[in-house]
């Protein structure tokens, strides 16, 4: 059985069509990144999946249930984190939020406690348990939100922009936790984000939505391949060097300062950073190297451009 199934899902707001004949399904254990520009229809889809918003037409099933008619059944099986909203009790110590959520989900007290302990340990939140939620930092709060969404061991975890506003270290911890959680529990993940790092580290499948329509459904590499998004490697050399035009699999984009810095573009399918570096360093002394990944905005822009919008 699919965890998420939509068929010809449509949602109209007064004059605009926010979601347009969306058809996709997500199998148990998958980790799916759901990306697109602001207003492309991501949040609208999530609201329909969770029973907050009624579809104009089409078919939607979440964990096998109709989210509109069987809201409670869906709520028991799904955990949701909205980056911009909180599900915690603002003026209570964090510990209390877990206790209340456990009761709301009709969990046995011992189960609640064991599950809380486990999540708190994995998310390294022990010192914050006695702190009022309003006094937590954003990074701490997002980890707490994640723990709250996972407390009842949902089959499906939906994260709407979970890393928005977080610093690099906080993002890193959040992602590491999610990877470990999924490895152990096999939780299905649906994630919307503007951060390519989230997708790369967490997702094995990407859905790109453009003006309410599914513009791409496949792997991340496939996505980059489809639109010809290339990785960029910048090599700094010790001596001024003539342009290196003969690196196999890579194309020279430009060079600076008499060839002290040279930039190459390459396709992941054709070669690797290591091969490029090996080739260059066998002939010249290399001082530094940076790799620039294709960013999500760029990839999405290309997809939009290819489909004649944007």
């Amino acid at each position: 059985m699919s965890i998420i199934e939509t068929r010809d899902l449509v949602r109209d707001f007064k004059k605009t069509r926010a979601v347009d004949r969306m058809t996709f399904s997500v199998q148990p254990g998958e980790a799916v990144g759901y990306i697109g520009a602001n207003g492309a229809g991501k949040s609208t889809t999530i609201k329909m999946l969770t029973g907050i918003l009624k579809p104009t037409s089409g078919h939607v099933r979440t964990c096998g249930f109709d989210p509109m008619r069987q809201r409670v059944e869906v709520a028991r099986r799904v955990g949701v984190v909205f980056g911009q909203r909180s599900q915690l009790w603002w003026d209570l110590p964090l510990r209390d939020s877990f206790e209340i959520l456990g009761a709301i989900h009709r969990m046995d007290e011992q189960v609640t406690r064991a599950r809380t302990d486990l999540l708190v340990e994995q998310l390294e939140m022990g010192p914050q348990l006695g702190t009022a939620v309003r006094s937590l930092s954003l990074g701490q709060r997002m980890r707490a939100e994640l723990a709250a969404a996972l407390l009842h061991s949902p089959e499906l975890l939906i994260l709407d922009e979970p890393t928005i506003g977080l610093d690099v270290l906080s993002k890193q911890r959040l992602r590491e936790f999610l990877v470990a959680e999924r490895r152990e529990e096999g939780t299905t993940l649906l994630l919307t984000t503007h951060d390519m790092g989230d997708i790369e580290r967490l997702c094995d499948r990407v859905l790109v939505v453009d003006h309410g329509r599914l513009a791409f459904d496949g792997t991340l590499n496939g996505l980059a391949g489809t639109v010809g998004a290339q990785r960029i490697v910048v090599i700094d050399l010790a001596q001024p060097t003539p342009d290196l035009v003969d690196v196999p699999g890579a194309t020279l984009i430009d060079s600076e300062s008499d060839g002290l810095r040279q930039r190459f573009a390459f396709d992941s399918e054709a070669t690797t950073v290591a091969a490029v570096l090996a080739h260059v360093s066998s002939r010249h002394e290399v001082r530094d190297l940076t790799v620039k990944e294709p960013d999500i905005e760029d990839v999405v822009r290309r997809i939009y451009a290819a489909s004649g919008r944007g």
């Binding site: 029973g51 907050i52 809201r71 709520a75 799904v78 949701v80």
Partner: peptide, 8 residues
């Protein structure tokens, strides 16, 4: 909306 996402 968060309140409606709870089974209570």
């Amino acid at each position: 909306a968060v309140d409606f996402l709870r089974p209570v």
